[in-house]
């Protein structure tokens, strides 16, 4: 097995452009997904079952199918409702919608974890529903929302690779392009994998810096610990 860095140096601009597209459309899809998740979560939390039903259905259906299928459905289905959109637009929207159903579940869980009466205490001092959400509810949601949202954001970055299948010129598409021209899969995929790895780890690091969580483990006997804990250098209690 040989590794020829010249291939990467020659084709670096293509991969770099793909990387930039991946970063931008992932970021856009994460924001879009979170925004779309808010009404979905609100519906899922509604008291009336007829309001909960559409949200539950959307969540179950989108979660039940591969992202690839969702992407193709929108790719071929959206033109029913309007002009054919560029693949990048359809792809980003699909990724955002895919993220939205996961974000919605996270938001719902965070809302359910709130102490009781918070919305009501905001209303009791004369805040409107919206003001109560903004000043009382939302600030309390953030700490519980951040870690699971980071996981979903990472998932979306990785799923964005699937957009290559509808010719969105992101990183994986660029990698396949270079691979098709050079027939050097080792170099191309090592570089591509590294770029994805860097991106998803950068996100994780930024998030843990935002909220330092201490993994507390149950104290265990030394003997049992030999079997119940993993890794010599893992987090120690």
């Amino acid at each position: 097995m040989s590794f020829d860095p010249a291939i990467l140096i020659d084709n670096w601009p293509v991969l770099a452009r793909g990387f930039a597209v991946t970063v931008m459309l992932s970021a856009l899809a994460i924001v879009l997904g979170f925004v779309m998740a808010i009404p979905i979560a609100a519906l899922k939390l509604a008291r009336h079952p007829m309001l909960r039903l559409p949200a539950a259905l959307l969540i179950e259906v989108v979660r039940g199918m591969p992202f690839l299928v969702l992407l193709y459905l929108l790719h071929f289905g959206l033109p029913f409702f309007g002009p054919r959109l560029p693949a990048t637009v359809t792809g980003t929207f699909a990724l955002g919608l895919f993220g939205a159903v996961y974000f919605a579940e996270v938001i719902r869980a965070a809302v359910l974890a709130l102490p009781r009466g918070q919305m009501e205490s905001g209303r009791a001092v004369g805040m409107t529903r919206l003001q109560s959400v903004r000043h009382i509810i939302a600030p309390q949601l953030v700490p519980g929302l951040l870690p699971p949202s980071t996981n979903i954001a990472q998932m979306l970055i990785k799923e964005s690779a699937v957009l290559s299948s509808i010719t969105v010129p992101e990183l994986t598409y660029s990698a396949l392009l270079v691979q098709g021209q050079t027939f050097s899969p080792v170099e191309v995929f090592v570089a591509t994998g590294t770029l994805y790895w860097v991106l998803s780890h950068a996100l994780a690091t930024a998030s843990t810096r935002g909220s330092r969580r201490h993994a507390r483990r149950r104290p265990q006997g030394r003997i049992a610990d030999r079997f119940l804990s993993l890794d010599a250098f893992g987090p120690r209690p």
């Binding site: 994986t172 899969p185 994998g193």
Partner: peptide, 18 residues
Amino acid sequence: GTPLLVQIFVFYYVLPAV
């Protein structure tokens, strides 16, 4: 840290190359 799709390409393209 990497997409499953890329991992699939690695198994499909890289393994034959080696």
